[in-house]
């Protein structure tokens, strides 16, 4: 099967890239999304704060996503959901699979990577203690609460003060949980000040800077954590341990671009961003493979993701048309 432009990921980056490529004259486009719906991570970001630049109004994540999804449906751009891309070869053969089509090999004239990012898992963090149930990344908890409608716990400690952690502190509080503290190893929060204000201060949730979780207690389920102060080198200071009873520990320790596929395509990676190296046409080191959105580098604002994706779509269209001319 051949396709002019295959877009991997149906989040805001993939959707905006598809629209832009279509506007620039590419008809034969296919968006591949592993989830059951388009819109990407925005579907679980039910809070407001999206679209101030793009739509000049403050939208929730799902509203921002649905506006783009509607534009894609309106333009009749083909897409497949529940479809997992498993490989991208350097010659731009994309391997994907789903229940209906089985395994597909698609030879693409150009590919746009728009796989987004994910959270650093606990493994990257080395907290002593067993691995009882009740430990989630903040993003997983966000999905459970907002999409599945399931509350993962009642007494919560959050490690890391990234925006998703702050947003979840408020979200869990609104749903009746008691968030005992947000613990941040650095002397300053990595989250936006507006989120510290409206997610923590509004609900009197303490933010413990220069602190970290030094122990997780509990055999089958988390029963508590030990929190310690850290010195300038982020080493725990003995004697400063404080115990918190809790049944849930959320981890919000930063995002990393999701680039297994990119590496598989032999693209040169940038160790600083965790994403692929790209030129000023957003093309990676692999001819005809472009990248945009959080897979390229982590963006704080979805509006910037959409803007970048518009460019990627246009550059990919230009590339495809040039190739055709040859």
């Amino acid at each position: 099967m051949h396709c002019d432009l295959v877009i991997i990921g149906g989040g805001p980056a993939g959707l905006a890239a598809a629209l832009s490529a279509r506007e620039n004259g590419i008809e034969d486009i296919l968006i591949l999304e592993r989830d059951h719906y388009l819109g990407g991570i925005l579907n679980q970001c039910v809070h407001t704060g999206f679209g101030l630049h793009t739509f000049k109004e403050e939208l929730t994540g799902p509203e921002y996503a649905e506006r783009y999804v509607n534009m894609v449906l309106d333009k009749k751009i083909p897409y497949k959901v529940d479809t997992m891309v498993t490989d991208i070869a350097p010659d731009r053969t994309v391997t994907a699979m789903n229940k209906d089509d089985g395994v597909m090999k698609i030879e693409a004239s150009a590919v746009i990577l728009a796989m987004g990012c994910r959270e650093r898992p606990r493994g990257a963090m080395n907290i002593p203690g067993k691995r009882p149930a009740g430990i989630y990344t903040a993003g997983t908890a966000q999905r459970l609460v907002n999409i599945e409608g399931y509350m993962p716990g009642k007494e919560v400690v959050i490690l890391g003060s990234g925006d998703i952690g702050l947003i979840m502190a408020r979200r869990m509080t609104l749903e009746g949980a008691h968030v005992k503290a947000v613990v941040e190893i650095k002397p300053k929060s990595g989250g936006l000040v507006r989120n510290i204000e409206q997610c923590l201060n509004d609900f009197n949730i303490p933010l413990l800077l220069s602190h970290t979780v030094t122990k997780v207690e509990g055999d089958n389920r988390v029963t508590g954590v030990v929190v310690s102060k850290v010195d300038e080198n982020m080493k725990p200071i003995p004697g400063t341990e404080v115990h918190y009873d809790c049944d849930t520990l959320l981890l919000s320790c930063g995002l990393i671009p999701e680039n297994e596929l990119t590496r598989g395509a032999n693209a040169t990676m940038d160790p600083k961003t965790g994403g692929p190296v790209a030129n000023d046409h957003l093309m990676t080191s692999v001819d005809g493979i472009f990248a945009c959105g959080n897979v390229y580098h982590v963006h704080d604002l979805v509006d910037h993701v959409s803007e970048e994706a518009v460019k990627a779509g246009a550059f990919a269209a230009e590339y495809i048309k040039e190739k055709r001319g040859n």
Binding site: H36, Y37, V46, H47, T48, E58, T60, G61, P62, V145, N146, I147, E148, G149, L174, E175, Q198, D202
Partner: peptide, 20 residues
């Protein structure tokens, strides 16, 4: 303040619908 949350949906493709 703006409040955002979710409510359960019956008979839909998802278990919940986000609200504000």
């Amino acid at each position: 303040r703006m409040v955002t949350s979710i409510v359960p949906v019956e008979g839909g493709e998802f278990a919940t619908v986000p609200v504000k």
